[in-house]
C-alpha cells in the first residue's frame, strides 16, 4: 500500500502542473512531483526487519561485526543518488521561480492564458 500512495502523491503534482493556470502553482506541482520521486527511491531501498529498532542506517558505528551491519543496513546507493537529486531539485525550482518573478514584472499577472493574450 506504500508504493501506490507514493504514486498518488506524484499524480497530485502532475494534476497541478497540467490543470492550473497560475505559474507559481505549476512550480508547486513540480516540487510535489520531485518529493514523490525522491521518496519512492528511498522506499525501494528500505530493508525490513522483524523489529523496527533493528534496522540500521548505512553508517558503520563499529569496525567489528561486519555481518551484522551487512544484513541489517538499508541500501546506501539510492540515498546517495537522492541526496544529489534533492539539491538539483532546489536549483531547478529556484530557476523556475526566477522565471515566474520575471514574467510577473513583464506582464503583471501569473496567469499563463492572460500572458498569451497580452502578448497578442
Amino acid at each position: 500500500m506504500v508504493f501506490p500512495l507514493c504514486f498518488a502523491l506524484f499524480v497530485v503534482g502532475l494534476y497541478c502542473v497540467l490543470a492550473k493556470r497560475n505559474t507559481v502553482k505549476i512550480v508547486i506541482g513540480l516540487a510535489v512531483m520531485e518529493y514523490a520521486t525522491n521518496l519512492f527511491f528511498i522506499l525501494l531501498g528500505y530493508r525490513k526487519q522483524p523489529r523496527l529498532a533493528d534496522v540500521q542506517a548505512p553508517i558503520r558505528v563499529s569496525v567489528a561485526n561486519l555481518d551484522d551491519f551487512f544484513f541489517k543496513a538499508v541500501d546506501p546507493l539510492p540515498q546517495a543518488l537522492v541526496l544529489t537529486s534533492i539539491v538539483i531539485g532546489v536549483g531547478v525550482t529556484a530557476l523556475a521561480l526566477a522565471l515566474c518573478i520575471r514574467l510577473y514584472q513583464r506582464y503583471g499577472t501569473f496567469d499563463i492564458d492572460e500572458m498569451r493574450r497580452l502578448k497578442g
Partner: peptide
C-alpha cells in the same frame, strides 16, 4: 526519510 533510516537525507 528519518523513519526510513536516511538521516543525511532528512537533514538536507
Amino acid at each position: 526519510f528519518l523513519f526510513l533510516m536516511a538521516p543525511d537525507l532528512a537533514i538536507v
